[in-house]
Design a protein around this nucleic acid. Structure first.
Lengths: 372, 372
DNA sequence: CACCATGATTGCAACAGTTACACCGGACCG
DNA sequence: CGGTCCGGTGTAACTGTTGCAATCATGGTG
């Protein structure tokens, strides 16, 4: 465990027998410092837990860390809700938030601690995306104050707050079984993070509990997004023994699947029951509104930022490893199992394109990134 | 116009005949400094364009400024797209982004310039929300480097990049008229910012151009959001002479309106044509996908942050006042005007909806990824 | 009136980190 | 051999901040 951060540049310099100027340059990645000198400085800085101050004061900045380019529009509402919660949690101790993308300007030979020091942040909230959980573990291994949000790790030194959807996933599938469904499809993302493993787990447990055979051919892996939902429905309809219900473990995928149902004239829930997943309000945007397992991203952000700042202020001690249970929101997308499942035949019969096609005029060329 | 920011605390102190300690405390809102002393310090700091440095270096932080608590989940995807673009634009000169909410910890007697100085940001991107345009103007009046995004101002000192949807709003309504519609409703937000005024303007121009009388009773003001769309549809159906088409100037409102159509068994576009508004991909999430006027929030963020940083680096000079035209995206929510408009009677009759619908061909959609 | 306690302001000085400039030493080339 | 260049380092001067002491006004009390 590093020291308490009360080391100064001058102390580092005197311990190393060099000048403060060289120490400062080494810490800031100036090109004019010899590699072995920089290595010695960084090593000692790490060992002593050096933390820069402005004047005599520590900074009060928290970093929200993304592995690479953050918050692309495709992330959907989760990031918004998360940010909203984070800002609320930081308000108590007047911390500020900086957005940091690790890939952008972290030097290759620079540790995460050094990188964050250089950015002037005291602690970070790590937003790992997909399978990049290594980032959170690497930061934790360096002992830098951090907490991961909406993901988890088996490493004991990783603080996190994540959702545990196992229970509600099981309840969701159980609900379908109670309604008489026996063949229930599961749609998961192509890459499986801990969240998706929970959902698979809950799905399996519900089936096992009712003595329903697991059918691997009903577990569909599709990329998260509208198109994934569309493809999943197509797979279901083409199945030899089609399911009468589906548990779709991603919000946008659920939207895509329900959208495809409407396109193909499949009535939900009369012909097909659907349970989905939601981070915010997406379940109310579809027709019908879908029953879903819901996680509260605002709450995640709030608790993570609050714990981190309290921890830095010395109010909170120890670690935080929280599994926050999800909620189950019942809406209009589930109903009794139909006598016969919908099949591809119904869909193909209805696929003659007698629609009125909209004119597609030569649309204005989309603006590209041009300098102004 | 303030100076070039090369003034130091010591120079301020000597000009005022006080110590640097007092100057520092005054600038940081320490409670132990006499009110009139602080007033004198702040006045001189403003006049000289003081800007704090860390050591000898200016900070490279940009603030994204919200009037109050930022990025609530209701904002939808606009904020995400904006942030994404901003981060990309900041990358070129290695600036960092801090999220700042003015209401949170700006002191009452503190100018915006002082507030931003205290936060250590060199320039700000102002995200005014709704009718809060005064914020951008107040900041500009103080001469602090700033640019407003997705809003505009008549004040010549306000830099901004906004969308001009007048042309496409007119084209959208014109498109409806070409399809034979004569009674076209307009749904606008209850508070009218410059964006909404554009849309009203385009709507009016299209009607005027075709010699169609404006009917004030077809201009519906509803709060932005799903519920607003629902209420707008109810108003339309209850109208004495119901419209056969509607131009809905907000994404979520459009979603709500289309959702309500599905609930009530109103077939779009056969019974009602709908044109909406979109910041990102929302138009592909509804059934049917709606034709919409689209603004590119990523581009806004990119251009704003790039101009601001280049301006601070001295590469760019002068002001930036850009009206970026929107795009018109044609989808499946518009069609020829029906012989008879849908009325409230029809809606009630269809309240036990026969939801099996004619299929429609799926349009190709770009692959997307999502969080979680 | 003298005197002390109290609290509000302020200054001194020591601290934090950064950078311009000079210096040094070795490599390279004429 | 001498000049030139360049990578690397230190000196010193510069930022802004804060702990502690000093100062000053004020008011209550003997």
């Amino acid at each position: 465990m590093p020291g308490n951060g009360s080391i100064s540049v001058r102390q580092l310099a005197s311990k190393l027998g060099i000048s403060t100027a060289t120490v400062s340059r080494a810490l800031n990645n100036h090109p004019s410092v010899a590699p072995q000198t920089r290595a010695r400085v960084l090593e000692l800085a790490d060992a002593t837990g050096y933390m820069p101050r402005v004047g005599q004061r520590f900074s009060t900045n928290i970093g929200l860390v993304y592995p690479s380019h953050p918050v692309t529009p495709e992330f959907g509402s989760f990031e918004n809700a998360l940010l909203s919660g984070i800002m609320r949690g930081l308000a108590e101790h007047r911390y500020d938030l900086s957005l940091i993308e690790v890939d952008r300007d972290r030097a290759d030979d620079e540790s995460y601690t050094q990188f964050f020091r250089r950015k002037g942040v005291r602690g970070v909230i790590v937003r790992t995306i997909g399978p990049d959980a290594r980032l959170a573990e690497a930061i934790a291994d360096e002992g830098f104050p951090s907490i991961t949000v909406a993901d988890r790790s088996d490493q004991a030194n990783v603080n996190f707050i994540c959702s545990d959807s196992t229970r509600d996933s099981q309840r969701a599938v159980d609900h379908l079984i109670q309604l008489g469904h026996r063949r229930i499809a599961l749609v998961v993302h192509t890459v499986l993070d801990s969240d998706h493993l929970d959902r698979i787990d809950g799905y399996n447990r519900a089936l096992d509990l009712h003595g329903i055979n697991r059918d691997e051919s009903l577990v569909l892996r599709q990329p998260a997004g509208m198109e994934g939902g569309r493809l999943a429905l197509a797979q279901m309809l083409a199945h030899d023994e089609p399911p009468t219900a589906v548990f779709c473990t991603n919000p946008l995928t659920t939207v895509g699947l329900l959208h495809s149902c409407l396109e193909q004239g499949i009535v939900v829930p009369e012909q097909l029951s659907v349970i989905g997943f939601d981070d915010s309000d997406t379940r109310y945007h579809t027709f019908p509104r879908y029953t879903s397992v819901c996680q509260d991203a605002v709450q995640f952000g709030y608790e993570a930022s609050r714990w981190l700042t309290r921890s830095l202020e010395g109010i909170e001690g120890g670690s935080l490893r929280v599994h926050r249970p999800t909620n189950l929101s019942f809406n209009q997308s589930t109903g009794p199992a139909p006598a016969q499942p919908v099949r591809v035949a119904a869909a193909t019969r209805a696929s003659r394109p007698d629609r009125i096609r909209e004119p597609r005029p030569a649309a204005a060329e989309p603006e590209r990134f041009t300098g102004v």
